[in-house]
Design a protein around this nucleic acid. Structure first.
Lengths: 116, 116
DNA sequence: CATGTATATAGTTAATCATCTATATAGTTA
DNA sequence: TAACTATATAGATGATTAACTATATACATG
């Protein structure tokens, strides 16, 4: 479940795409500006941008023939929210385990799940 | 760069693997215990565990013939640390942009990068 | 309108992946 | 040692992916 996280994490798994995100964190950029930052062809960058846009990590507007790309922090916040469920674990307290159990319950295949 | 994040994010992109992580957040579990939680075969679960272990997200010990799996929060903390560079963006302040610039500098292909 | 610039789309290829079945290995116990 | 339990490995298959080249589309400007 939480199918949107599949796309988000998959998008973030590619170093070129994380680098694009790093660039866009400094401000908007057009496709060709981004192409200049990498040793990759324009269609390849466009494909990466499509993946990032599908994952909701960026949005694209339209200015003349250019398509300025903008970082969309909401998708990153979703990752942050997912992490939140686990942050308690490495912080030693277990207050937010309820959320984890919820994720468990909503997962497609599951069993009773006995408390250890 | 930060090749370890490639593996980590790729591992987290699969819903079954995120579900395994959710299970393990409640405590250790053997392979067969995890198999019972999913409608997938044991080799498939073992493959997922291998991916999670390679990404450093879990570790496996040895008790008799069983291989108890344990969540390793360190890898999740690495994701948290990566996110930290961007948290400032959705929080409205730009104090931690230095770290982002660092990521930019270390990325294999890049150009001058003018400040907007 | 013709040309140039910015971006998208189509089609190809080699690699990776999630899943399965079948089988091997390792440890336990009768 | 034989039989059972737990897990790993091998091999096959269909789907997805990241990259390329070539081409199409859209807008701008002479």
């Amino acid at each position: 479940m939480d199918i949107v996280l599949n796309q988000t994490f998959a998008a973030l798994a590619d170093p070129t795409r994380r680098s694009i995100i790093a660039h866009l964190s400094r401000g908007m950029a057009t496709v060709s500006e981004l192409v200049k930052c990498f040793e990759l062809t324009q269609p390849t960058i466009s494909a990466h941008l499509k993946v990032l846009e599908s994952a909701g990590l960026i949005s694209r507007s339209r200015v003349a023939q250019t398509r300025p790309c903008k970082l969309e922090p909401t998708a990153l916040q979703a990752v942050d929210a997912w992490l939140e469920d686990y942050r308690s674990i490495w912080e030693g307290n277990y207050a937010r385990l309820d959320a984890v159990l919820e994720e468990l319950k909503l997962t497609h295949h599951q069993h009773p799940g006995e408390t250890p």
